[in-house]
Design a binder for these strands. Sequence first.
DNA 1: TTCCAGGTATGCA
DNA 2: TGCATACCTGGA
Length: 286
Amino acid sequence: MRYVFTDVKPFNLEAMLEGGQAFRWEREGKGYRGVVKGRVISVSYDKDTLMVDISEGNNTKEEDIKFIRDYFDLDRDYEKIEEDIKTQFPELEKVIVMASGNRILHQDPWETLVSFIISANNSINNIKKVIDRLSQNYGRPIEFKGRLYYSFPSPEVLSSLSEEEIRCTRCGFRGKYIINAARMIREGVINLEEIKGLPTEEAIKELTKIPGVGVKVASCILLFSYKKFDSFPVDVWIKRAVEGIYFNGASKPVKEIINFAQNKFGNLAGFIQQYLFYYIRNNKMI
DNA sequence: TTCCAGGTATGCA
DNA sequence: TGCATACCTGGA
């Protein structure tokens, strides 16, 4: 099924899909192809128009459209967000100009949780490969345009694996964390739906009860699947960027950087984090 | 061969 | 509380 969305701007597929928030997208011609919540999606963007091909599902057209609008955050006014950031924080103007059209995707909490457990002390390239192998081995096959793709495996499936079995995904020391997280979800020790309703600080407390989940991973889940925009995940890149722009390059503890960003940026913090990440990863230095 | 990658857990002062 | 260190694996 094909859907066309007009007057979509600003919108930068590369920034969104290769910007480190989602790991299941690959370039396909001028666009991208990926698997989202059990559906295969092909997207391209040109002249303010977003074209989306999506694999067969049980949804109505209206539900599909809602699903796509929701995932790509099409109903949020990013022109205003970018304008607000440039006005309030002129020091970030070059960042926003360079990364314009980057949006926060609305991803599945479970998939985001596992993806960012895998991200610890890992490279983006390798994270993608491990997630692919997890899906191919334990996900559900989906046919699309004559090819097979695989959904992200459920907590039920992953909770039944042994550390020996999950080794085929080459996730390394993170295997035990993934299996344990799946069990905590299955047994109701952690309820991802309930966490969604908590304020950022409390949600981080809950999520970090899961071994393998620290403040950074928890913050990513909050930002990329719960739309908690005051969340500000700090990794080595963001740390370096904030220190460069605001502390004259002096090293600061992560805790201090989070507090600084949340106080200064408020509900724009999450967006700024995402623009900054894309900017610094593609500019080498500030 | 060695080092590093969207961090986290652990042990010790 | 704060700091150092180990950790699977793959690529440079």
